[in-house]
Amino acid sequence: MKIGIPRAMLYFKNGKFWTTLFDELKIEYILSPETNKEIIDRGSKLAIDEACLPEKVMLGHVEWLIGKCDYIFIPRIEYCEGYEMCTRFLSLPDLIVNTFREKSPKILFYNITKNSRKGEYKAIKKMCKFLGIKRRKAKEAYIVAKQTQGYFEMFRAENQENLLSSSHKNKVLIVAHAYNIGDKYIGGNVLRILKELDCDAIIAEYANAQKCINLSKSVAKTLPWTYNKHLVGAIELYKDRVDGIILLTTFPCGTDSMVNEMVVRKYKDIPIVVLTLDSQDGSAGIETRLESFVDIMNFKKGEM
């Protein structure tokens, strides 16, 4: 049996967890390639016009995987870290089944429907039962995979802290969902341009999730979505140590459309730029905007 993992959306959040899990369970898997023009174009054709860019990317990746594996791995997650998720993660398996109905791909998923701490483990256990794996083996694999992901995140966060304290360049906080900044085709351009402009990119999503979620309560009390809570909390965590903030979103992200407005209203004494990307963007527009943003940061620094 071979499982196909689309390199899109939640892969950028849980990639290490998933791959380690399947390694431990000794299940063969393939990853779809890095997002490229062809995948995005295919995805845009398959998706509804109004759908958000990550969803289009996802559909492109799924199409690439169809025929190359037995199951396509699309988890369905309603709750994460005690809070709810964007409705897109709820409807993803059904959406994919309906979009590719003629090709009838088999979908493998774990389904977190309850808002509890053990929800994820129970969901994984259920998936393993479906795959015919013994319970003990499933538990072992889950623990190893979870730890791997945990260490990976911890290491990433620590590296970032080191960079923050050692760097003397302009530090720019990039506030973007994991699947936007992690995807080289979407967020990669911004990172490259920032490097060329001699800035250090601090990535909000790398900060410790639990800590950030707690911090976010002081900024946005009733914010419902886990990932946005994480990002807003990261702004609160890093705001005194960075020179500017980039709010990087894709069109038309439902949750970001409201949260960005809130962030812009709450943080008034730090330069903020909102970059909205869609599938047809060349990089020239972003380059100009980032150049002027760096100028603003320098100006503010010189003034103080």
Binding site: E84, T222, P224, G254, S257, M258, V259, E261
Partner: peptide, 30 residues
Amino acid sequence: GACRLNYYGELAEQILRDMGYKFNFFNMAN
């Protein structure tokens, strides 16, 4: 509600307060 409606209240209140209006806001999401 279950979608963006969950965040309507807080953002609406913030926008109106920034505009200088004075009012009480009953937000069921609270």
